[in-house]
Design a protein around this nucleic acid. Structure first.
Lengths: 246, 246
DNA sequence: CGTATTATTGACTCCATTCAAAGATAGTGG
DNA sequence: CCACTATCTTTGAATGGAGTCAATAATACG
């Protein structure tokens, strides 16, 4: 479940982390903070942990331990409805902050599951309020992140009313955007999720996802090889996602 | 528009508000706070303002002025997509806190529009961070509210995948629940929105809303008289909604 | 290598939309 | 107060987009 590091104690690994030198600091919480404040932050953020595919970062019903930041790999956020059906509410890329689903009740209403080998950091819940008092600007940053989550959700609500091809195009464009902002290729990336999972996430049947990927390929918008996507015409894909039927 | 108080200036009226005596304090921010903290809160919350039907509380694109709490009447939250189509993201009842759509960028991504004559309070944005430092527990309360908003949004995403009758049933049950929690009747209430608006909100055609209301009436679940709803069988309605309330 | 999972493809079905037209209600001004 | 108009609602019929079912193919995995 986690790898050995013989020359350092596991406790050291778990307690010491350097947010200032983290390659994701421009995306994660430290973004808007001063140098000395990032040090304070580093002191309470626990160092990265590693998990494998299908491992849970937290389960629905778990008490809120803290906000998490993905350092590498991807995750899905899953919620189970009253009928027992699962809904994939989001997919997380490196640098993205999550765990907000426990903010209201201190109990997670979703599960976070690794889609591949991942590593992540944790900002403990019990230090959150305290730290906000000590670090000016942290509160603003946290509000910014929670606000972003709210904006994303409302976008998702609106997106779910557009036709299937628009939804899938938007999903691909979003992945491209987010990957490129994180320093990865904007045109070559891996879907990480199965057709089934993508369909679930977008509110489509898995067959529809399969058919549309093929259709996009035939229109020379993308190349598909299993889960590997190569974007050939991002402009066309964007105009398709931007709701222009053509 | 506001009652006369000859021995007090209107400015005083606008700046002084007493959250402690407000009938909505058990729903609004003061809920989790101590008495002395509510006083601090009262000092910065501006007293209720009044608006009429179709008036805007804020427009999409407006700078964030502060969080608002509805004291009476109802509102709708509207967002415009890239095609110029409007989407009703939510309906607000008395005691509900809103304005979170500006949390991430300090610019509102939605508009809030009065569905009838309303009154509301305002917690100014520029005092938010400052007040969080002075009032222990306020931060927790704010997180609780923003978290609630996130939970509501994810429920909405899930709801939008169920069949039309489930969506409408859930909407009605939600209104019933929320109204009764606010001291109004759980079985008699006004929809406030047109069929068009309800359809927009639930991702349905207005004709579908009309047909389903009739169908519910024929099943003796509700009585409908224009926008007035009387719930005859809340249990059946709930089992039909078979989904967590919004 | 064989088995399990995942993906593709076609045919059929259905729920909700769209189109259309008539009926009801509310709001306005004479 | 009533007539007039705009807005909203109801209802029917036809259409279509995406889901479901089913069978096969490809890929991943132990």
């Amino acid at each position: 479940m986690h790898r050995e590091s013989k020359n350092r104690s596991p406790i050291y690994d778990r307690l010491k982390v350097d947010c200032g030198n983290c390659s994701l600091s421009s995306l994660c919480i430290p973004r808007g903070l001063k140098k000395e404040d990032i040090v304070k932050l580093s002191d309470v953020v626990s160092a990265q942990k590693t998990l494998g595919r299908r491992d849970y970062l937290y389960h629905e019903g778990d008490p809120f331990r803290g906000l998490l930041s993905l350092k590498s790999g991807t995750c899905k956020i899953v919620s189970t409805d009253s009928e027992g059906k699962e809904h994939i509410l989001g997919m997380l890329l490196p640098g993205e902050l999550f765990g907000f689903d426990a903010l209201s009740t201190d109990i997670h209403t979703c599960s976070a599951i690794a889609l591949e080998t991942i590593s992540y950091c944790e900002l403990p819940a019990n230090q959150l309020e305290d730290l906000c008092l000590k670090v000016p600007g942290l509160l603003r940053e946290l509000f910014r992140h929670t606000g972003e989550r709210i904006t994303d959700d409302t976008n998702m609500i609106v997106l779910n009313r557009s036709p299937a091809d628009q939804r899938l195009a938007t999903f691909l464009v979003s992945l491209s955007d987010r990957y490129s902002r994180r320093g990865f290729s904007a045109v070559d990336f891996n879907l990480s999720m199965t057709r089934q999972e993508i369909g679930n996430h977008l509110g489509l049947a898995l067959e529809t996802v399969s058919r549309l990927l093929k259709q996009f390929e035939q229109k020379h918008l993308i190349d598909v090889q299993n889960k590997n996507i190569h974007i050939r015409d991002i402009t066309a894909l964007k105009s398709l996602s931007a709701c222009d039927p053509m």
